[in-house]
């Protein structure tokens, strides 16, 4: 790696001040597992990194409240994986984390980093979008609220300004939600996914009242699939409905080809996995 300066601010406010609104070579670093890869690959040469490792402790904890969970952005993925509050509120997140990358990465990578990095292959964003999670984003002029589904604008791109930081993630109460996340690999079993599908259903037995369906990995960003959601809403689930939802999803998602599969193949995968994910969600029981 090529030399750079490292700043270690003691507070979030100080960190924001150290970031530069117009300089792409100054970036925040949390767990660093993703950023280090980019630096080692020579695709990112920072002049200064602003480490978030020493900011206030309140940004790395999980708090349960009446309306859901508040997760500090610096919370590690393994802390989230082991959180009993998380498991109670949304076991789908606990299950997802269990197969997210590996133990060493989860010990270091943070929730905020997993969102801000905006790699479409990551597992957490589609699940958070399906569960209707939101974020508090801190910038020079204070904090703003944003739904996770509005964060991503494209491949490794977000609406975040260069001097903004995700401070906290909020997962609302999930009473009666049935959710599942399925990832499909086409290389080794531990490959990055060729496709991720997250679904969260409000349902009465087999009868779906409303659905949130999210695709990731096969597309340039994690995104909801309104056509598939509409095909499921108000329906009693059977093979025909799932086929219709799969068809809608296959038609509306904007696939990208890569070493993990062609557009045609990923379309077929999504068509099949919409149904598999909905069935898995129904079988998972309500949160």
């Amino acid at each position: 790696m090529i030399p750079f300066e490292l700043a270690e601010p003691k507070s979030l406010t100080e960190a924001i001040k150290l970031l530069a609104p117009d300089d792409a070579m100054v970036r925040p670093i949390a767990g660093g597992t993703a950023l280090m890869l980019m630096m080692k690959a020579g695709v990112f040469h920072p002049t200064r990194l602003v480490s978030l490792g020493k900011i206030e402790k309140k940004y790395s904890g999980i708090a349960a409240g009446k309306d859901g969970l508040r997760i500090g952005a610096m919370t590690t993925l393994s802390a989230l994986e082991q959180s009993l509050d998380m498991k109670k509120l949304a076991p789908v997140i606990t299950r997802t984390l269990r197969t997210l990358s590996n133990v060493r990465v989860r010990n270091v990578a943070t929730v905020g980093g997993a969102l801000a990095h905006a790699d479409p292959h990551m597992d957490l964003p589609p699940v958070l979008i399906a569960l209707g999670a939101s974020m508090s984003i801190a910038g020079p002029s204070g904090e703003r609220e944003l739904a996770v589904e509005d964060l991503f604008t494209g491949y490794y791109e977000t609406v975040l300004q260069k001097n903004e930081l995700i401070a906290e993630v909020r997962v609302p109460s999930q009473d009666g939600t049935r959710a599942a996340y399925m990832k499909v690999t086409t290389g080794s079993a531990d490959d990055w996914p060729a496709l991720g599908v997250a679904v969260a259903l409000q349902s009465d037995g087999n009868a779906v009242k409303s659905a949130r369906v999210v695709v990731s990995a096969a597309t340039s960003k994690a995104m909801r699939l309104p056509g598939a959601e509409a095909a499921l809403a108000g329906q009693r689930i059977d093979d025909k409905i799932l086929a219709r939802a799969g068809e809608a999803a296959a038609n509306e998602a904007d696939f990208i080809a890569d070493v993990r599969g062609s557009v045609s193949y990923k379309r077929e995968l999504l068509r099949v996995y919409i149904g598999r994910a909905v069935r898995a969600a129904l079988e998972s029981g309500a949160h």
Partner: peptide, 12 residues
Amino acid sequence: SLADYKIPGFHD
């Protein structure tokens, strides 16, 4: 890279 060229792991 090992991120994109996959080799057998435990689950394979």
